[in-house]
């Protein structure tokens, strides 16, 4: 799917959008579980075909609570963003250095 005449730029936009969207959506979901009691009650009371949600199932059999797992998920998302930006910039710098050397 091309959004721009430059295919590389178009792909860059799409990948970055989906990456940021997924991380942001996951973080907001976890933030709501921690701070919004309505969202928390809705999540913990929800069951599909009699199967509880992931965090609820873990919380039932371990010392973790749903909120601590949500906090862990926010931390995971932040680590994923920092790692992706860091590694992406390093890869970009390496490509530019190779490009300059070729010129």
């Amino acid at each position: 799917m091309r959004w721009h005449k430059d295919e590389k730029l178009s792909n860059c936009f799409l990948y970055a959008f989906f990456g940021i969207f997924i991380l942001l959506d996951s973080t907001l979901f976890s933030y709501n579980l921690i701070y919004d009691s309505a969202a928390f009650n809705s999540y913990c009371g929800k069951s599909i075909f009699g199967i509880h949600n992931d965090f609820t199932r873990i919380a039932e059999t371990t010392d973790f609570t749903v909120r601590s797992l949500a906090l862990l998920n926010i931390m995971n998302s932040i680590i994923a963003i920092i790692a992706a930006v860091w590694l992406g910039l390093e890869a970009g710098n390496k490509l530019r250095a190779e490009d300059l050397a070729a010129k």
């Binding site: 860059c12 990948y15 970055a16 990456g19 873990i58 371990t62 797992l69 963003i81 930006v85 992406g88």
Partner: peptide, 23 residues
């Protein structure tokens, strides 16, 4: 079993990070 359950959300963070890196 807990890792398998948690890695639904963890998989989202992983995929999000990979997509952002590719972008």
């Amino acid at each position: 079993e807990y890792i398998g359950l948690y890695m639904g959300q963890g998989g989202e963070a992983l995929m999000g990070g990979i997509l952002l890196y590719i972008g």
